[in-house]
Amino acid sequence: MAYISFENVVRKYIMGRQEIYAADHVTFEIEKGEFCVIVGPSGAGKTTILNILGGMDPCDSGRVMLDGREISSLSQKGLTEYRRYEVGFVFQFYNLIQNLTALENVELAGAICKDPLNPAEVLSQVGLKDRMNNFPAQLSGGEQQRVSIARAIAKNPKILLCDEPTGALDYNTGKNILGLLHKVCKEHGKTVIVITHNQAITAMADRVITVRNGKVTSCVLNPDPMPAERIEW
């Protein structure tokens, strides 16, 4: 059985009389340690899939499994615990706590989980050893995203979910961040799932899942992933 599996997951919204399927019988699988990219145009439903996987949004039907555990049947509390212990998030807009230093932001996440990594170490690993005590406002976008990633890693989660991690970053910084994520995936052995509308990024993924109109149109393994620094868009 795969590490992560979506089986006929449906998520629909009622807009007036119309039912809109954000996720329409989505089915895919991801293996442990894979660097997976979910790609699709805006509004295709990729964020919905991420939200369901991240335990932020429930699904209306179907089954979501992670490491042999059914996510889709968890209670609110279960979901919170799930987010707390098993998922790391990286947001497009970093979502750092402005009032905490970089280190503290990482510590904040680490404070609530069972087996956190050393925040300072993690920050060193993401290359922010010298900026540890700076406030987010004193950091650049890339640096903030690194803090964000460090925060996610520090929790020592099973999976790392990244929603457009490069969306707010310039090209080079974006590539650095992608490289960092890749490194985390490979060095820490975390399963990393990146959502993006940027097709170019698929080149570095182990698995590419293409979503369109709420449906998974393809789920292919990339036999030869490219290192991030070589990706161009």
């Binding site: 919170t80 987010r83 707390r84 998922v87 979502n95 706590i97």
Partner: peptide, 16 residues
């Protein structure tokens, strides 16, 4: 609100 949402996403319990 954003900060709070972030915390929730990070898996803070409601009481926290």
């Amino acid at each position: 609100i954003k900060e709070i949402a972030t915390l929730k996403v990070l898996g803070f319990y409601p009481s926290e």
